[in-house]
Structures are given as structure tokens and as C-alpha cells.
């Protein structure tokens, strides 16, 4: 570590991580609420009615961020899993475990709102399109990960087995992303791309960005809060946890 830069390895110790996460959680929670309120206001009252899809398109403002988050969280989990396996840091595995339920929730929301959106637009709750199917597979992967972790009682083995499974499953993410190009079916192509001008109105795009940031902040808050619980549970036999719990009992 060069002098002057932050020593990140400091936070790989569960006791330091616990304090850091405790500082991040309230900020992220407040940010999530504020951005969520702004985003919902924009999406219901400011964004104009779509000339083809009418009011129904507004479900996009939760559907698209949820779909993005569902995939992104899996990639983040894979990164933490890789860090954990390479650096042998316990906190990384705890982050993988903490992120999984949130990822599964966003996947479910994306599928659910997609069904609600699909009924008026396509006339069907569900179509066997590539993107829908791969989102469903992603949900299976999340569930498989959680099932594997909960069925192994030794936490060290559970962590590592889960991390390995996540790394194997991350192969699925590019398939989701490129499936639109590969199969080219009913689902509309991506409207936002980095190299071309977006085909939607600027205010819609901004609403989408605000909602996505709200989902990010929510994910950070929830994942760190959950990770704090996992730290306490796993480290319950250490002195610092006993002191912490003791302080709260007496104080």
C-alpha cells in the first residue's frame, strides 16, 4: 500500500467492517428514501404520457431498474466471491451472502412487473422470450445459491461452495445480455445504449436514472445492514462482539 492511500485491508477485519458498515447504512437508507420519493414523483407526475403505450409504460420506472439491479447484483456477488477466494477474506463472503436475498427480490420484481407490463402491451402475462427466460434462470441461480448455503452447516465451507457456485453461474449474465441479439424475439430491443442517442425522452431517461440510483442506495443499505447481522452472528464468540453487546445491555 502506498502511503497516503486508504488501507482497504483494514476493513477486511470483521470488527472494522462492522463499524464502517454501521456508518454507511443510515446514509444509504436516507439517500434511498429521498431518491425514491423524487423518482416516484417524477415517474407519476412529471414524465409525459407515452404516445403509443399510454399510461401503462410508467411501470418501466420500476421494471427496468429492478432488471438492471438483478443482473448487476449477481456480478457484484461474483466479484466479492472472487475476492474472497483469492484474498481469503471472510468479509467478502459475508457480502456475497448478504447481497443474495436482495438480488433475488429484484429479480422477482423484474419478472412480476414485466408480467404486469406485458399483459396490456403484448396481450400475455408471460411469453417464452429469451430475456424473460434468462431472468427466470437468474432467479433459479439466486435460489440455488441460497439453498446451497443454507444446507451446509459449516460456515467456512458454505461460504466457499457458494462463492464457487456464483462464479460458475456468472457465465449466465452475458447470455442474458446478448440474448436479445442472439434470439431476437418479441421483447423490444434495448432502448438505451452507450454509443447511440437514447430513443426515449430526456425526462424519462432522468426519471429512470433517479429510480436506478434509489435502487442502488436501497441495495447498499440493506446489504450492509444484513452483513452487519452476519458479522455479529459469525463473530459471536469474539471479545469485541461480547463487549459491544454488553455495552448495549448496560448502556
Amino acid at each position: 500500500m502506498a502511503s497516503g492511500s486508504i488501507n482497504w485491508f483494514k476493513y477486511s477485519a470483521p470488527s472494522n467492517f462492522y463499524v464502517l458498515a454501521g456508518r454507511i447504512v443510515p446514509w444509504a437508507a436516507v439517500l434511498a428514501v429521498v431518491l425514491g420519493v423524487i423518482g416516484l414523483y417524477l415517474s407519476f407526475f412529471v414524465a409525459p404520457t407515452d404516445f403509443r403505450q399510454g399510461e401503462g409504460y410508467r411501470i418501466m420506472f420500476i421494471h427496468v431498474p429492478a432488471a438492471w439491479m438483478s443482473m448487476f447484483i449477481y456480478v457484484v456477488m461474483a466479484c466479492w466471491a472472487a475476492v474472497g477466494l483469492v484474498m481469503n477474506t471472510r468479509v467478502s463472503f459475508m457480502m456475497v451472502t448478504a447481497l443474495a436475498p436482495t438480488g433475488a427480490m429484484f429479480t422477482f420484481i423484474a419478472l412480476w412487473t414485466g408480467a404486469l407490463w406485458g399483459k396490456p402491451m403484448w396481450g400475455a402475462w408471460w411469453v417464452w422470450d429469451a430475456r424473460l427466460t434468462s431472468e427466470l434462470i437468474l432467479l433459479f441461480l439466486y435460489i440455488g445459491f441460497m439453498a446451497l448455503q443454507s444446507s451446509i452447516s459449516d460456515s467456512r465451507r458454505a461460504d466457499r461452495a457458494g462463492a464457487l457456485l456464483v462464479l460458475v453461474g456468472v457465465v449466465n449474465i452475458p447470455i442474458i445480455y446478448y440474448s436479445v441479439k442472439w434470439w431476437n424475439t418479441l421483447h423490444q430491443g434495448a432502448s438505451i445504449s452507450l454509443d447511440a442517442a437514447p430513443t426515449m425522452a430526456a425526462i424519462m431517461l432522468w426519471t429512470l436514472i433517479v429510480m436506478t440510483l434509489a435502487c442502488w442506495a436501497y441495495t447498499i443499505a440493506v446489504a450492509y445492514a444484513r452483513a452487519r447481522c452476519i458479522v455479529l452472528e459469525r463473530e459471536r464468540n469474539t471479545t469485541w462482539v461480547k463487549e459491544l453487546v454488553g455495552d448495549q445491555k448496560h448502556g
Binding site: 434462470i137 435460489i143 446451497l148 444446507s151 464457487l164
Partner: peptide, 23 residues
């Protein structure tokens, strides 16, 4: 991979299907 991950885990048989079928 699935078989190796679930080796000696309780409920291994059902778990393998959950892990491996999506892949």
C-alpha cells in the same frame, strides 16, 4: 461441479437438481 459441491450435504440429491438444472 454440482455433485462435488453437494458432497456429503444433507438433502444433496434435490439440491443438485436445483444447482445444476439452470446451468
Amino acid at each position: 461441479i454440482g455433485a462435488a459441491l453437494t458432497l456429503g450435504v444433507r438433502g444433496g440429491g434435490v439440491l443438485v437438481s436445483l444447482l445444476v438444472l439452470p446451468l
